[in-house]
Design a protein around this nucleic acid. Structure first.
Length: 315
DNA sequence: CGTTGGCCCTGATCGC
DNA sequence: TGCGATCAGGGCCAAC
């Protein structure tokens, strides 16, 4: 999807210029926007990696700064350059309305454009990476890379077992080969909370938003507030399988190819149109049993479900 | 430490 | 036509 669409265009590309239109989109960046810009210009993008709703672009070493050539020449400094250079990434947090749009330089600006990277791609020439975000829940930041605790590649598109510090606490995506089913089930058994809250807890499992949670729960016939500890291992296994189906379908349908010159990060858009069974379907018939889907307020969000198919079970 | 509620944001939509 | 109220929700953080 987004990451896959972005990858061929940004890998090995050089960042020529950076424009910050909205300071609040740098809320998670540790420093002023000038610092953000200075540290990006001149560097190369090494890859495009995703975990859950976080996307990051590992960066080459810092560009040589004018002003201190003597220090730059010392062995100690060039050594630290290499270390710090391999240890930083541009982190993109999409929030709920964030998009990363790959654009031709001739295309008109989006009204909600927050940050722009002008890049030169070896394969495609000059391009723009536009960060568009209506509600400014998302953000960009430069962050240092840390080793992953399990030693496995950090996410989709990653060769290295390195993850930005801001993303280190985010659990693996269930489609990630290194995701441990058993650890997930064990965690569910220990929790004292409802299943939907657990599905939305990014410390436990990532990549599931409100829509995918409701769709997965509907497919597995599980009530959103079923206590996780009472969910049988078999039902938990079935639920996880549905989560993977929903996420996989969303990936397939949300995918936009690069030659469209437009990469839509909001992977749900393609998925929304025709295949929703529960989310936003309140007042409509359950596609399975025909009874009415209802909506309840939960966690400052909506929970959409079939009260007949999805009931809290004793165990 | 696990759990929970509240907050951040603004464009679109709705009712009057 | 205008305008205020309401809704949408991912992740973070304070409070219990």
């Amino acid at each position: 999807m987004v990451r896959a669409g972005l990858e061929p265009a940004v890998t090995a590309a050089t960042i020529d210029a950076v424009t910050v239109f909205e300071e609040r989109s740098l809320r998670r960046h540790d420093g002023p926007s000038e610092d953000f810009v200075e540290r990006l210009v001149g560097r190369n993008i090494l890859a495009a990696v995703r975990r859950g709703k976080f996307l990051w672009l590992p960066l080459s070493g810092s560009p040589a700064r004018s002003g201190s050539p003597a220090i730059l020449g010392s062995p100690a400094f060039s050594g630290s350059l290499e270390i710090s250079g391999s240890g930083e990434a541009l982190v993109v947090h999409l929030g709920m309305s964030g998009q990363v749009l790959l654009r031709d330089v001739a295309q008109a600006d989006d009204a909600l454009l927050r940050i722009r990277l002008d890049i030169t791609s070896p394969a495609h020439g000059p391009l723009r990476v536009d960060f568009v975000d209506q509600r400014i829940f998302g953000s960009m930041a430069i962050d240092r890379l840390l080793p992953t605790p399990d030693g496995h590649a950090a996410g989709f598109g990653a060769d290295a077992a390195l993850i930005p510090s801001q993303v280190a606490h985010i659990a693996r995506d269930p489609l990630d080969p290194a995701f441990s089913d058993r650890r997930f089930f064990d965690a569910l058994a220990k929790r004292r909370t409802g299943i939907k809250r657990a599905l939305l807890d990014q410390n436990l499992i990532s990549g599931i938003g409100n829509i995918y949670a409701d769709e997965s729960l509907w497919a597995a016939r599980v009530h959103y507030d079923q206590p996780t500890a009472t969910l049988s291992r078999a039902r938990a296994r079935a639920l996880l399988a549905e989560v993977r189906l929903v996420l996989g379908r969303a990936l397939a349908e949300g995918g936009t190819s690069f030659d469209a010159q437009y990469v839509n990060v909001n992977g749900a858009s393609g998925y929304f149109s025709n295949s929703l069974s529960a989310y936003g379907q309140q007042g409509k018939n359950c596609p399975r049993c025909g009874r009415l889907i209802i909506r309840e307020s939960f966690m400052n969000r909506g929970s959409h479900f079939c009260p007949f198919c999805q009931r809290i079970r004793a165990s």
